[in-house]
Design a protein around this nucleic acid. Structure first.
Lengths: 309, 309
DNA sequence: TTAAGCTTTCACAATTGGTGAAGGCTGTTT
DNA sequence: AAACAGCCTTCACCAATTGTGAAAGCTTAA
């Protein structure tokens, strides 16, 4: 391992404080330890990170590059702690939100971002679970709000249409495939897929099993961006939400095809056990979701109109 | 410390592999060590993170929340390594980019994101330096492209207008201040500012010194979002780029006022030593910047048009 | 030149983290 | 029903990492 969260923390204090001494004080360790950690990082990167001026230190160019990343990483770890702590304390004002797949990385950032800005005293914890489990957890009261695919059995839960979520097939630019393609035919080709822990992956595997087949997965990747990039290189086909295909399709050289099967035409639902019994702040988020869904619909219309012009 | 990068890595392998054994194999340690690490995390969070089923493990709800964050943190550390390694090797295809302030977090994400997607074999390293140093580093050939404020002395460098970057004053909603305000008058009030390492902070402090005054900084924060939020709470005034004020102003309760002084009317420039001598891939990025600047200008026009309607 | 303020080095101590074997639990197989 | 295979936990022990405190060297300011 090249470095450590403590390394980053100490490095940052040093740069911000302008001296190793400052970093040592701030982190309750001795200057020698700071010096050692810094040196260790420098040799492992093979780069000087700070310039020793005899009156303190200043980051070198490399150090400045590190600063940006270190801030980000530490910031994320802080959020991690905050969110898990909030969850563990069951603190009033913590909403437990479940989504069906990472695909919601399409909508959630803006959606939650603006909500959290407007309500800085509310915490939201997010987790990715298969739709099936989401509805169970909602029923047991272990979560407040869930986003699930229309395929799930939502009996006994209150629900609202959220956004459409059609799955599409993406193929390398020079691949000879056309028109709506059936999953059975897709399975003839090598595929690029997401991690097995992601709901979408599990869903597709089950589907293949039902056809008595097995998908020929070439690689599994972390997110849709990587997936698209690998498809672009011609390594295989990929199945992604239309929003992702549109998003990355502009810059990448793959083509987007319809999937013939009915399940590709998904719809996402917002789902709760009982809106009335929900804490007020959770109802507030629910409302936020609903207005967002409205806006998304309008935006789609507007886009269509512009294209017409 | 509650956890460690190694903890996260191992936790993720365990969840993805579905067992501690799998995680142990993948990380070249013994199962007992994995177990110990997991337990340590669980007690420090005060939460069970996985459910032991006797036939492996499955993440609990809390565990699933952690998964998302762990992925993000580890992903960031990977990017950190990649970027610093690229920088240290001076690898062909690495562009060294400098910006004058973190304000570029306004433009850079989309800008670099789309560029890197279109050119997956090019690396870009980014660092934040005061404009003055940026121009020096460019002159010495220690960096390829810089973004600097118009205030810097760019003689001997080639430059293009990038985007306007007016500084504005933000005040809590119930504060009684109006119209264009001079910096001398701003200094009468408590201020919220960024870290001292950020160029903008240094610039403002120097400005105060020239007036023979000292800013009364209440708190220093990491980024403009936190700054805006604290101003919103009524803790003091803040000086931020107009883009940030617009971005957060929609959701927050502060007002935006003009700053009377001339330096508030900044303009950002893209700056290089010699376009011809630049490596081809760096010229490509330069071009990308130029088209982006064009688009931004057009978008501004379009927005103005819509408002008129 | 002195003094103050930094960083580095080094031997040593403390803490942390890993090892491997033994044991217990669960679900499967015969 | 009993043996089995796979998995997690515990524990005593050992190795590696990390922090400590003192001494020394360097740079700037008075």
């Amino acid at each position: 391992m090249k470095f450590d969260l403590t390394d980053l923390r100490i490095f940052l204090s040093a740069v911000e404080g302008g001296s190793l001494t400052a970093a040592a004080l701030q982190n309750n360790i001795v200057v020698a330890a700071v010096s050692a950690r810094l040196r260790k990082m420098e040799v492992s990167f093979g780069l000087p990170l700070v310039e020793r001026t005899g009156r303190g230190i200043r980051p070198t160019l490399a150090g400045d590059i590190l600063v940006g990343h270190a801030r980000k990483v530490l910031d994320d770890t802080r959020k991690l702690e905050v969110e898990l702590d909030a969850f563990s304390e069951g603190r009033g004002g913590t909403i437990r939100l479940l989504s069906n797949t990472n695909m919601l990385s399409e909508h959630m950032p803006q959606l939650l971002g603006s909500f959290l800005r407007q309500n800085p005293d509310i915490f939201v914890t997010v987790a990715d679970k298969p739709s099936m489990e989401v509805v169970n957890l909602l029923r047991n009261g272990e979560a407040d709000i869930g986003i699930v695919a229309s395929s799930a059995d939502m009996t006994g839960l209150e629900r609202w249409r959220f956004v459409p979520d059609r799955l599409v097939l993406i193929v390398p630019g020079d691949w000879a495939l056309e028109g709506p393609v059936a999953y059975a035919r897709i399975l003839d080709h090598p595929l690029i897929a997401l991690n097995t822990t992601v709901a979408l992956s599990q869903f597709l595997r089950r589907l293949a099993t039902e056809l008595g087949r097995r998908a020929n997965i070439r690689i599994r990747v972390e997110n849709f961006e990587s997936l698209c990039r690998i498809v672009e290189c011609g390594a295989g086909l990929g199945i992604v939400p239309e929003s992702a295909a549109r998003r990355y399709g502009r810059d990448m050289g793959f083509r987007t095809l319809e999937i013939a099967d009915g399940w590709a035409e998904r719809e996402l639902y917002v789902c709760v056990r009982n809106q009335q019994q929900l804490p007020l702040y959770a109802q507030k988020l629910l409302l936020h979701f609903q207005t967002y869904a409205e806006e998304a619909k309008n935006a789609a219309f507007r886009e269509a109109a512009i294209v017409k012009i």
